[in-house]
């Protein structure tokens, strides 16, 4: 700014609006300005995303090469933390359990969701809203409440065992989450209960988008309900199935709260999952390096599995 003379940026250049429309310079300027304005709109989201997702992710990656307790000066550890993730049976076992949970959090709910979609679309619109609400309810409840409730349902004198006793299966009753062999399965079934409704709601909305003419044409050609479901509904749901697969797989591998309140990894480590050990390593044991390495491996695993799902579901 020059000395003395007051600047009047607002009053000086601006071309009169009457001749602005056709001129080259103002238009280009406007385009640049519109571009800048676009970025301005993006800025809040970018700042939040960068600050709370990108930056922590990069920090985690850099921590994973350190030997650090979070307080004292860190020392370089190289790939030592990664070696530990791969070789420590505890950590490797947790990743294995996470993969088992995919069956219960992803495969089974998608199958159940498809089944319910098939049933609900076949019987027409009556009562659909009711069923949709009921099945979707688990998604709305906080997982901590879900976990605590299921811990009671599964307990020695809980509802699950009472039901088994009532139908004459006394021999099967046990404290499910305390059982060395059944705990992981019991935990997985809670995931199935949570995720099935989500899958169903996704599939229902997808099924409603399918052109009814396709169903009519298939029916005229003599296709029964099963056939129409297989050859009309199912292909039409490709995108929804892929999305459901992605969401539920992430939920399985990154599950923490549900495990934390139901079994906390027990009995005797049978239900350890990676996120639980990340938490323990970082906050109980003060081993930020190993915790970060496990988190990075888990993230890579999620990205790899999600990529596979997307690839399989791609339109031919």
């Amino acid at each position: 700014m020059s000395d003395g003379a007051p600047a009047h940026p607002h009053t000086t250049p601006a071309p009169a609006p009457t001749h602005g429309a056709g001129g080259g310079r103002p238009r280009r300027w406007r385009r640049v300005r519109t571009g800048l304005k676009g970025w301005l709109y993006l800025l809040p989201a970018l700042a939040v995303y960068g600050g709370f997702a990108i930056y922590p992710a990069l920090s985690t990656f850099s921590f994973s090469f350190l030997d650090w307790d979070g307080v004292q000066p860190p020392t370089w550890a190289g790939v030592e933390n990664y070696t530990r993730v791969v070789t420590d049976p505890l950590l490797a076992g947790a990743i294995g359990n996470g993969l088992v949970l995919i069956v219960f959090f992803s495969f089974v709910p998608i199958a159940v969701g498809l089944l319910m979609t098939g049933l609900l679309t076949a019987r027409g619109g009556r009562g659909t809203t009711f069923y949709r609400t009921v099945y979707f309810l688990p998604q709305v409840l906080p997982l901590v409440a879900v976990g605590t409730t299921w811990r009671w349902l599964y307990s020695g004198d809980g509802a699950v065992n009472e039901f088994l006793g009532a139908v004459g299966l006394d021999g099967l009753t046990r404290s499910w989450l305390a059982d060395y062999h059944f705990a992981l399965i019991a935990l997985g079934l809670i995931g199935t209960w949570c995720m099935s409704g989500l899958c169903m709601v996704l599939f229902m909305s997808g099924a409603q988008k399918i052109d009814p003419a396709l169903h009519e044409a298939a029916a005229l050609d003599g296709a029964g309900r099963m056939r129409r479901f297989r050859h009309v509904t199912l292909p039409g749901l490709r995108k929804e199935i892929s999305i459901a697969g992605v969401i539920t797989t992430i939920a399985a591998l990154a599950s923490f709260d549900l495990v934390y309140v139901t079994t906390n990894g027990g009995p005797a480590g049978q239900t350890n999952v990676p996120a639980l050990l990340v938490y323990r390593l970082a906050f109980n044991e003060g081993d930020i390096g190993a915790a970060s390495a496990l988190a990075v491996v888990l993230t890579l695993l999620v990205v790899a599995l999600v990529s596979v799902i997307r690839l399989l579901a791609r339109e031919k």
């Binding site: 997702a53 922590p56 920090s59 979070g70 000066p73 860190p74 990154a254 970082a282 915790a291 888990l298």
Partner: peptide, 15 residues
């Protein structure tokens, strides 16, 4: 996803 946001910047310095 899984990140350890609770970790402060790497503060150096001796005791």
């Amino acid at each position: 996803m899984l990140t350890l946001t609770a970790c402060a910047a790497l503060s150096g310095g001796s005791a």
